[in-house]
């Protein structure tokens, strides 16, 4: 069984539940995806399927060669599948994979924040705002001891590049899945900007 899809973030909105409370949801254009390659234990050492998503107008010749007679697709992503014996090349999956109430993990590229300080990047508290402080409001504070160890320890949290990174949000509730419109609504936020590419997988059930 293929347990995931490739999608595109449409944006956020809200829906009312039957009780009248509001749920914030993210709308995702999910699938349909076609299987473009099947990876097997015998050949690749693990079993997975490669799915394609989005219509491509132009592809270079290696990409066309890889897809063969299949429809030209813009994006390829791999999904691990335990048993690939009953899956054919070109097999299509759509959003009917998910039912309302299911839990999904969504992976995407987070919005880039540029070079960010410690307050934004690691939730440092910053310095006092008053009592004669100057230039210390968003300072990181001490980054270690003195002569011993005489260096800054590896992994010390500091300012640096933030965002534009592959991020997964786990266990989001599926609110609606409409195969006619290839529309998926999940509760809560999802990484990345609008029109960003997303991988949606069923959450693994843990004991």
């Amino acid at each position: 069984m293929i347990n995931g899809l490739i999608g595109r973030k449409i944006g956020m909105t809200q829906v009312f539940t039957e009780g009248g409370t509001v749920k914030a949801v993210t709308a995702i254009e999910a699938g349909p995806c076609a299987v473009t390659q099947i990876k097997t234990d015998a050949k690749e050492g693990y079993s997975a399927v490669q799915l394609g998503f989005g219509e491509a107008k132009q592809l270079n010749s290696p990409e066309r060669g890889h897809l063969g007679k299949l429809d030209l697709v813009k994006h390829l992503r791999e999904f691990r599948v335990k048993d690939v014996s009953d899956i054919d090349l070109g097999h299509r999956v759509d959003v009917s994979l998910f039912q309302p109430g299911d839990l999904v993990d969504v992976r995407g590229i987070s919005k880039g924040k540029g070079f960010a300080g410690g307050v934004k990047r690691h939730h440092f508290a910053g310095g006092p705002k008053t009592h004669g402080q100057s230039d210390r409001h968003r300072a990181p504070g001490s980054i270690g001891a003195g002569t011993s160890p005489g260096r800054v320890l590896k992994g010390q949290r500091m300012a640096g590049h933030m965002g534009n990174k592959r991020v997964m949000v786990k266990r989001l509730e599926v609110v609606e899945a409409d195969p006619d419109r290839n529309l998926l609504l999940v509760k809560g936020a999802v990484p990345g900007a609008r029109n960003g590419l997303l991988e949606i997988r069923k959450s693994e059930v843990r004991g």
Binding site: I10, G11, M12, T13, Q14, V15, A27, E29, R181, L185
Partner: peptide, 8 residues
């Protein structure tokens, strides 16, 4: 798809 057309 446009966000305004998602939720009726």
């Amino acid at each position: 798809m446009d966000i305004s057309s998602v939720v009726e």
